[in-house]
């Protein structure tokens, strides 16, 4: 009874706390497993080996470029879905989430069907411009963007739909075109949603494996990102695979935590 802490509201309900704790454990225990099994003594050596550095650099660059692609295309798409007067919006909204439910390998094959050397579009890219996307770093960026974009679109659309459209009307009465109103009024007001979506999108792109290896293949320095390196290392040297995973984990957690502190300050 000497405790200085006093409860301002009743006890936390067990029906919420129990599943929450189980859920947290469910997410964290596999990570603990990874960390326990990691051969910490060889970690620094692996970390500074050129092939790991190369894969890590490629992963960060490709995930960031893919995120830029997603932002440039995804934010306007989210706006169209949330505010545009397009027929069949419900169907469009469902279609946008397709890459979420599609196994990524299938997504990669679908990209090959379209942008591959003999693909619907790719054959003309190749014939007219000499552009071939598979087996290139650009291909990695495309594959990652394809898989990651729904995360951004869904978050931004949610933020847009929660935003009060009357602010856009207020901007219109002040003489702002829809584009200016979007840029100067709507976008700043949904910034937290955009940042959250960007972070999710980047994280998804960073971990992308299936679509990348299927569409862009695997060649060191060109298309071998960390997840691909992890997968191949698992074939012969599981210890190395764990080290690679831990490196990817540390870097991504570091970046995400830094972003969070910078952009998503919780309600204080």
């Amino acid at each position: 009874m000497t405790s200085a802490r006093r409860r301002t509201r009743g006890r936390l309900p067990v029906v919420l706390v129990l599943p929450a704790v189980v859920g947290l454990a469910f997410l964290l225990v596999p990570l603990v497993g990874l960390l326990v099994r990691a051969p910490w003594d060889t970690l620094p050596e692996q970390l500074f080996s050129s092939s790991v550095g190369e894969a890590l650099r490629l992963s960060l660059v490709c995930a960031s470029l893919a995120t830029v692609v997603c932002l440039v295309l995804g934010v306007p798409l989210a706006w169209l879905l949330a505010r545009g007067d397009v027929p069949g919006r419900g169907v469009l909204r469902a279609l946008v989430t397709v890459p979420l439910v599609l196994p990524p390998v299938v997504g990669g094959v679908a990209l090959l069907f379209v942008l591959g050397r003999r693909g619907l579009v790719g054959q003309y890219l190749d014939a007219w411009f000499g552009i071939s996307l598979p087996f290139t770093t650009a291909g990695v960026v495309l594959a990652e963007a394809f898989v990651a974009m729904p995360f951004l679109v869904i978050s931004v659309e949610g933020a847009l739909r929660a935003a009060d459209p009357r602010y856009e009307e207020a901007a219109a009465t002040l003489g702002a075109s829809r584009w200016l109103a979007f840029r100067r009024v709507t976008l700043p007001s949904i910034l937290p949603g955009v940042v959250a979506g960007t972070v999710l999108c980047w994280a998804r792109a960073l971990g992308e494996f299936g679509a990348t290896i299927t569409f862009a293949g695997n060649f060191p320095g060109e298309t071998t990102t960390m997840p691909l390196a992890v997968y191949l290392a698992l074939e012969t040297d599981p210890d190395a695979a764990i080290v690679l995973s831990v490196v990817l984990l540390l870097v991504s957690v570091g970046v995400l935590a830094a972003l969070r502190d910078r952009w998503i300050s919780g309600p204080s």
Partner: peptide
């Protein structure tokens, strides 16, 4: 001088089948 080093033989086969 390969363009890609696939994770398994079926993936290699797919690339050939698609003409990539």
């Amino acid at each position: 001088r390969p363009d890609t080093l696939e994770q398994d033989v079926k993936a290699v086969l797919t690339k050939v089948r698609l003409g990539e």
